[in-house]
Each structure stands twice: as C-alpha cells, then as structure tokens.
C-alpha cells in the first residue's frame, strides 16, 4: 500500500493509470480494425482443404498395396516396443502352396486406439516398414468397442520377398 503525500502525486497516479490502460486498449483496438491479422481457423468448414503435416501422428495403419498385400511378417517387434499394450498380433500357421512348408503369418493385427499414446516407438521398431502413422485425427466414436481395430484387410497377404 502506497502512501499519498500530496495532491500532485494523487492526480499524477490517476493520469499514469489511465495512460497505462489506454496503452493496452491501443493494441486491442489495432486488432479490432485489422481483421486480416486474425489467425483463427474455421475448422469444420475447412475440412476439405485442411492438410496435416506429414509426420503428424494420428493413428497406426498397416500399409496395403493395390494387390491387397502388406509387409507385416508377424515378428511382434511392434508389440514388444509398445509401452501400453496397444498392439496385439495374433499369428496363424500357413502352408505355402508351392513348397508345402508351414510358415508363420498374421491372422489379426489388433490395434487398441483407446490405449495408444502416439509415441511412435512401434513405427521405429518395425524391421520391414509395414506400419506407419496416418494423419487422421477425428477419432471420436459413440461406442468404445469401435476403437479396437483390426488393421489387416480381410484376405490380405504378405508381399512376396519380404521375409528374406
């Protein structure tokens, strides 16, 4: 608490106070009359043109090519790298029609989006670059069970030459 000694100081402080308030008002007034400098995005309206950065981590996807083939060998490196148990890989035995040998292949690549922290460790761990982070971000659903996804397409196969 300051002690006011004389009338000059009293009015001086009032003048200083009004001046400081006007300094702040000058800034807000400037932006009021320069609407072009406003930086907000009109999000739901600009969905068509909105492009996320390439490295943005939205969700894990298994890359499929046009022949419905993926690069996942079912080695479970991503499952081990994941800190939260987000990825579950269920393997099956498959018999190669040409050689007749039984090989390991993925049956289901289960991804629990609700547990994912988007740390990117699974992507780094993958030895065959089978998974990547997609740039989607609208993940809200009405039912929690919809957040558990099977990433491999039905009927998809391992791309030839990956296992070697």
């Amino acid at each position: 608490m300051r002690i006011i000694k004389n009338i000059g100081q009293y009015f001086g402080e009032i003048f200083h106070a009004i001046k400081s308030l006007l300094t702040g008002m000058k800034i807000t007034g400037y932006y009021f009359f320069h609407p072009k400098e406003i930086v907000t995005q009109q999000y739901p309206e600009n969905r068509d043109t909105l492009k996320m950065f390439d490295r943005f981590r939205g969700e894990v996807v298994l890359i499929h090519d046009s022949n419905n083939e993926h690069r996942c060998t079912g080695c479970s490196a991503c499952e081990l790298a994941c800190p939260n148990g987000t990825i579950e890989i269920i393997n099956k035995k498959e018999i190669d029609p040409e050689t007749g040998k039984s090989t390991k292949a993925i049956d289901q690549f289960v991804y629990h989006l609700s547990m994912c922290t988007f740390c990117n460790l699974c992507i780094i761990a993958c030895p065959t670059d089978a998974i990547k982070m997609a740039q989607t971000f609208e993940h809200s659903v009405f039912d929690r069970s919809k957040l558990t996804k099977v990433l491999n397409n039905p009927g998809s196969k391992l791309m030839p030459g990956i296992r070697e």
């Binding site: 930086v39 996320m52 950065f53 390439d54 490295r55 943005f56 981590r57 922290t117 988007f118 740390c119 990117n120 460790l121 780094i124 982070m133």
Partner: peptide
C-alpha cells in the same frame, strides 16, 4: 500456435512430442 506448428512438422506431435530417444533423436 506457431511453435506448436514447428513441433508438429518436425516431431510429429504438438504437445507430447517424444522426439528424443536414448542416443539421439527419433528422426
């Protein structure tokens, strides 16, 4: 917002970036 854009482009996330790994950087 401009800084988070820089982070998003380089690190891949705006807030929880997880850009460091023991030994260096993620990319």
């Amino acid at each position: 917002e401009l800084i988070t854009d820089i982070f998003e482009e380089t690190c891949g996330a705006r807030l929880t970036m997880n850009y460091n790994v023991p030994g260096g950087l993620m990319f």
